[in-house]
Design a protein around this nucleic acid. Sequence first.
DNA 1: CTCATTACTTGCAAATAGCAAGTGAAAGTA
DNA 2: TACTTTCACTTGCTATTTGCAAGTAATGAG
Lengths: 149, 149
Amino acid sequence: MKTTGKEDIRSHCAVNYGVEVFGDRWSLLIIRDIVFVGKKTYGEFLKSEEGIATNVLASRLAFLEEQGILSRAPSPDDGRKDFYTLTEKGLDLIPVVLNIVLWSAKHDSKSYVRGAKEFLARLSRSPMQTSEKVKTLVRNGGCLFPESR
Amino acid sequence: MKTTGKEDIRSHCAVNYGVEVFGDRWSLLIIRDIVFVGKKTYGEFLKSEEGIATNVLASRLAFLEEQGILSRAPSPDDGRKDFYTLTEKGLDLIPVVLNIVLWSAKHDSKSYVRGAKEFLARLSRSPMQTSEKVKTLVRNGGCLFPESR
DNA sequence: CTCATTACTTGCAAATAGCAAGTGAAAGTA
DNA sequence: TACTTTCACTTGCTATTTGCAAGTAATGAG
């Protein structure tokens, strides 16, 4: 996956576009960290459970910004930090992420979902409505489970 | 991504499980080919628009079978061929794939979807119901756009 | 002014992807 | 039956990507 320069896109099939933009081992985990626990900075993403490497994180953040999924803004009260947030295009990935959660919850007995019971029940009852709610929540600076940060 | 032996799983977060199983540059395209145009054999997958390498295809098919997403059975009328089909676990990925399609259609002006207009309209009106219909169709050996094979 | 933090970059080794050229078994053809 | 083709891979090699460890420059805190 390139992070700069010209794109060499394999096809314009709609499935392939998604795969090319976020179909790697880290992008969706970054988005997860924003949506579920409200992470915003490089340092917070770096502390993810899965242990992303520093250079890989840097290139993913740059790529996702370049693709218009994340936007970056300087932290108001710490000049060293930037806050990464989801753009509308990024927020629109929430249904994708939540459908993955639903799939994993069904097919991987070891999978856990934060706030599992209630949230999962609501999600599987009405995935699209739940997605919309979550989208609004995150758009307004919130996240699903702020306490578990 | 390993295709054999012991798994070293990064975490049991539900998002991560999905990423580890189908979060690469090819898996979802194989599933797309099954769901959209009804491909079944190694040779058919190999002819995909995006041009997967022979060894990569072989290892992905093996991995997806190992993960219980694809099942493999000898072709009834040609001893050289195997037919790959989606298991129930694989069929359950259809909502994920269709939500990706919806996202790409919205955010990539160059994206095309086979049978675009009608199907996309139906999909965006009621994604989950459409997913269920498609799941049933594919489970019974059909696919969305058999003509475009 | 000094030291810790933060967000990176750089260099290198290991793993993975991609390409071209086999290989072996089954199918089609004469 | 022998010969050729098709099919589903495997093998060997190179190129790209990932991952780790060790920097580094720019704040911020004391």
